[in-house]
Design a protein around this nucleic acid. Structure first.
Lengths: 223, 223
DNA sequence: CCCATTTTGACACACTAATGACACATGGAC
DNA sequence: GTCCATGTGTCATTAGTGTGTCAAAATGGG
């Protein structure tokens, strides 16, 4: 099984190494970058499942890197900020950071945030060959098998389904779904969700009924 | 018309600023407090229409502030909690919070909650897995179970039932119910309540008898 | 770079549950 | 019995969703 890959961009060598060591201990695959440009290069090269960005870095600061990443990628990003960089934090939220950790922090705290973020972002948390209510998952290829029939899902469909699977029985509002799948800065109509639900249901066939409509609130996944 | 005023008590500057900025964009008037004491002071001073309280704050935590506020004020309060699995939310509901939002969240999600809360203005939610007289509540899943049978309630039915549960043994007049569930500015016939009570009773089956008619006064919920 | 294909977003219209209004039935208080 | 408040069935309206279709945007080869 493919491991979870995390990119750490932090110019303080010691801190970066501590974090990377911690990741290794937890079974994650970590890549270290010591400046912004290296971070971007590694991001393109490795396509990690999560990115940790220090705000203050040589050559290219965290925000610039984030902005660049956000052009094409919705990967979960955690920003590392020092206590007094208040304005910076605002800026980060605007460009689309998913969480912030203020220095100093413990690796343990960072791990907690990462795990929470990965879980919520729903992109990578499904193990291979997981089976939920007759639906077999193959996240690496974004494939799904129902009754020996393989089904190809699109990005949005796949992400939504994972999000539902990870939050079974919970009612998810259109806004929550939008935030998670489209990104909190998505500006379009919240009814895109309806359309995508429609398509997902259709592909799921009879299993589509697992996605229930809670009128006035949203949708939920239940067997 | 007077604008809607919201107090945001959150010690993380970046987050508070982002929220306040969103409020402004949405046409709300926002006040920021960075610790519990400041929050209390601002609450007294500004008498906001809605209060957002971070649980973890310097000087005075969110629960203490809430407790203080609840001595004299029934203003809608949303608590910001750090971790989903914590007892935070339970404790918050006990002291009288109206909703909780788990960090990190997007401004969009918070806005949705605020709007919903303002609309309901005072309808208190119920903790998960509460059981009252054989009726099992599960608000997160938006489910109600009686004798292992799940029941789907509509919005109005659900809100009314919660209102009754939160005010057991109290006689609630049609006017009170209208104010809470339909909003104080509802202009229609007060006998819509009768119709909704009828429907709720029907869905509750034999438990419908728990909703008793107090002739000339209104209704009350009792086992 | 172009073209074919897929994915996505927007929108109109259809459909259905929820709601509100009302007429009439019921039942207690006097 | 009458009076009056409440119960209840029914129906029209409304609000919220489902869905087909089209166009725009992204993707993927030649």
């Amino acid at each position: 099984m493919k491991g979870i890959r995390i990119l750490v961009a932090e110019d303080e060598d010691k801190l970066r190494e501590v974090i990377l060591k911690y990741f290794k201990k937890e079974g994650y695959e970590g890549f270290g970058a010591s400046d912004g440009e290296e971070a971007l290069k590694l991001w393109e090269e490795k396509k990690p499942d999560c990115v940790i960005l220090d705000v203050m870095m040589p050559k290219m600061d965290g925000f610039e890197v984030l902005q660049e990443i956000r052009q094409t990628d919705n990967v979960p990003v955690i920003m590392l900020t020092a206590r007094r960089e208040e304005d910076d934090k605002i800026q980060g939220f605007e460009v689309g950071a998913d969480d912030y950790v203020t220095k100093p922090f413990s690796p343990r705290e960072l791990m907690v945030r990462i795990k929470a973020l990965l879980k919520r972002s729903g992109v990578v948390t499904v193990e291979n060959n997981l089976e939920v209510c007759g639906i077999q998952f193959n996240p690496e290829e974004r494939l799904m098998t129902i009754n020996d029939e393989t089904i190809q899902l699109s990005q949005k469909e796949y992400d939504m389904l994972i999000y539902f699977i990870n939050n079974q029985k919970l009612v998810l509002s259109r806004e929550q779904i939008l935030d998670r799948i489209w990104g909190f800065d998505y500006e379009g109509d919240s009814r895109v969700v309806d359309t995508s639900i429609k398509r997902l249901r259709k592909k799921l066939g009879e299993k589509g009924e697992c996605i229930q409509t809670i009128r006035g609130l949203g949708y939920k996944f239940q067997k």
